[in-house]
């Protein structure tokens, strides 16, 4: 087989990669040791970053892509896929992560946006992207830019699942509503939510987003994770929820099992017993406007 007959970085390969993550838990890690713990607990992938979101909140200032040194350490430590976060619109951070060999790039509102008008033109990359969304319009705009996976934003670093629930219900509810519309109504609706009409129609036909949709931003317990799955998530991202809990290894394993058995309360009850403290939570209603991450990059 000659190399020129191989095609790399196609839409199918990007969406296919995302599809392999389904039913899985993707965990935020800041060191190679944490990455190993996550892999041993059954994570399908790890998200390498400089600080978990709750620490980003505490530190303040500008949050950027992780040090390449750290990303490489994490890549070398595990055999599961490694993802990395870049600032919204920061296409050079994305070029750097692609060169390092990261398997998927998260263009994330958790970091400080680099461009307040444009997201990254994700179709220019061979590596797939995941992007955050609060509603169907945001999700479809990101998919139109080339995102191969969506994650509902929630409110990262709070340990409070309320925003993740709101965003998942927004998306699933809008898709359910679409199914009762005729084509003209769909086109009108697409204009309303500022999304491409063809993608709106595709959602209506398939009864779901055209790409894999994970939940993120506030998941702190096995029950939180299972609830997001029951609400229609294809899998979950857990950020601060694991390594800010009192017993990360056990929490990681319990969340993996809860996602696998999301419809079996007896399993969730068993894995939740005696887990120790979940991460300390924040009431999202007490956040100042400038502390809210989900409104970045719409």
């Amino acid at each position: 087989m000659k190399l020129e007959e191989l095609r790399f970085g196609t839409e199918l390969l990007k969406r296919g990669f995302a599809s392999m993550q389904k039913g899985g838990v993707i965990m935020d890690v800041v060191t190679a040791d944490q990455a190993t713990i996550a892999e041993d607990a059954g994570a399908v992938a790890v998200m390498s970053l400089e600080r978990v979101p709750s620490d980003i909140r505490k530190m303040g200032g500008v949050a950027r892509m992780a040090d390449p040194e750290k990303v490489i350490e994490i890549i070398d430590a595990v055999s599961i896929p490694v993802m990395g976060k870049v600032r919204i619109g920061h296409f050079v951070e994305a070029q750097v992560l692609e060169i390092l060999g990261v398997d998927m790039i998260d263009e994330s509102e958790v970091l400080t946006p680099a461009d307040e008008q444009y997201h990254i033109d994700k179709k220019l990359f061979k590596v797939p992207f995941v992007c955050g969304a609060r509603d169907l319009g945001e999700a479809l705009r990101r998919i139109n830019e080339g995102a191969a996976m969506i994650r509902t934003k929630g409110e990262a670093g709070t340990g409070n699942v309320v925003e993740a629930v709101r965003h998942m219900r927004n998306i699933m509810g809008d898709i359910r509503m679409l199914r009762g519309m005729d084509k003209q109504e769909m086109i009108d609706f697409a204009r309303d939510i500022e999304a491409p009409a063809d993608l709106v129609i595709e959602c209506a036909e398939r009864g779901r987003l055209p790409v894999v949709n994970f939940s993120a931003g506030g998941i702190a317990t096995p029950s939180d994770a299972a609830m997001m799955m029951q609400l229609g998530a294809d899998g979950v991202f857990v950020g601060s929820g694991i390594f800010k809990s009192s017993s990360p290894e056990r929490m990681a394993k319990a969340i993996v099992e809860a996602v696998n058995h999301f419809n079996e309360p007896e399993v969730i009850a068993r894995v939740s017993r005696g887990l120790g403290d979940a991460m300390p939570g924040l009431d999202v209603h007490t956040l100042r406007d400038d502390e809210v991450l989900q409104t970045r990059g719409r």
């Binding site: 087989m1 191989l6 095609r7 790399f8 390969l13 990669f17 692609e98 398997d103 590596v127």
Partner: peptide
């Protein structure tokens, strides 16, 4: 051999 071709950027389509 797992991941025998490399990482995601080395994933590919081909006619076999």
């Amino acid at each position: 051999d797992r991941n025998a071709f490399g990482r995601q950027r080395e994933s590919f389509e081909a006619d076999l």
